[in-house]
Design a protein around this nucleic acid. Sequence first.
RNA 1: UGGGGCGUGGUCCAACUGGUAGGACACCUCACUGUUAAUGAGGAUGGUGAAGGUUCGAAUCCUUCCGCCCCAGCCA
Length: 447
Amino acid sequence: MELRKMNVANETGQMPAITIEQAGNYDGQEVILKGWLYNLRQSGKLLFPIFRDGTGIIQGVCALKENPEAFQSLKGLTQESSVIVTGKIRAEKRAPGGYEIGVSKIQIVQKVPESTPFPIQLKEHGVDFLLDQRHLWIRTPRQAAILRIRAEAIRAAREFMDAQGYTLTDAPMFTPAACEGTSTLFEVNYIDDQKAYLTQSGQLYAEAIAMALGKVYTFGPTFRAERSKTRRHLTEFWMLEPEAAYVEFEEIMTLGEGLVSTIVQGVLKNKSRELETLKRDTTKLEHVKPPFPRISYEDAVSLLNKNGNPAKFGDDFGGDEETIISSSFDRPVLIHHYPTSIKAFYMQPDAQRPELALAFDMIAPEGYGEIIGGSQRIHDYDLLLKRLHEHKLPEEAFQWYLDLRRYGSVPHSGFGLGLERTVAWICGTEHIREVIPFPRMIYRVYP
RNA sequence: UGGGGCGUGGUCCAACUGGUAGGACACCUCACUGUUAAUGAGGAUGGUGAAGGUUCGAAUCCUUCCGCCCCAGCCA
């Protein structure tokens, strides 16, 4: 694509319109850039505009003596005004990024009025202000880099799943009742006084589709009306949820391991510039390759006790416990065989030790918490029905789910990967709210 | 929902034991041909989250309310 454009330019003598990330391929050539004015520095009769176009930023240079017309248009131009720039790309050590554009012509598409300057400065701001300005905040280089890394994480994840023979499918957003019955659901008014709920997981539906297509995965938003106010929680977040027929516990853990390492390696390979923008210490990401350490729940309890944590069998692990366990390893760690009592109703008990569930969590390093939760699912009709009753769930609502155990039931497994937590960890962001374009949190639905 | 913290110009902060609310950035003008969140000089704008109380006097102390942040729980 780049080559073709270059050839066209050379043959016809027309200037190529390029993106800033391509600038290095056009050293010495006259090009057109379409973007925005990110910043403007001035030194006498020399202007140093910084342009951005969504792919990166590049410094421009404009001298009064050489280009009086462009100089006059550019001088005093306000931050974030949209511009089309013509000029010659050249390697320049003094320019950030190594290349700059010598501006010969500038067309102002829209000038930001001086009376209402762009609210986000290059200096520091508070979180609340930035979130109120989220629609503009995403223009800044750091936020743009994070969103590009998010896109790469999704691309790498989907490529991996497809290559493993999993078929992309979709679960509904409107559901008639709780999937797991535990978390709080968002209730919505459906047609004609009916109530519906926003999904908190596509898993149960993915199980049904897995019985139709074999190996499947869903990828979409999920909603939790929990009153969680930590840096790891959103009320709307995206999950990738594989579900596979005839796949048992060991195999599904290995799939999770492959998925996470593929995402990390994909970002390292294809978004190194963005990681650099974020000043992310990539040495911590480089060894995120299989195999990941695996530790049983019981061994994890022992490990915690050795580190002075009073956890005992039957306790669920909180943030403190996760941090102690994950800091013992240099890559994500899988904790498996949790007590049945603290896990969801649909999880298959271990054949030898039924008090333990074939369930696992993957904990990200550096305190980013659980990024995967998964299990082998109960495939026996009677056991599933018993568990539904034990968890006091309405049997009627789960008739279709029970049907899956009535018509050719097979062992099957799956998990959910939390996209935002994964991306937050890869980016090393302070808060999960930075890794989704418009975060939805307990007290924020604007903008 | 508990525990802790914070609310001061558009933004980021300062203001002693209660004593005239201030600085920087942003905006405008001028100077400067290699700036790196440029720098220097000048200018205009504009604020104590809300209500009540104590006091000669409240950003500061008290009460209530509102908003936000962090942690826990729940979870991805």
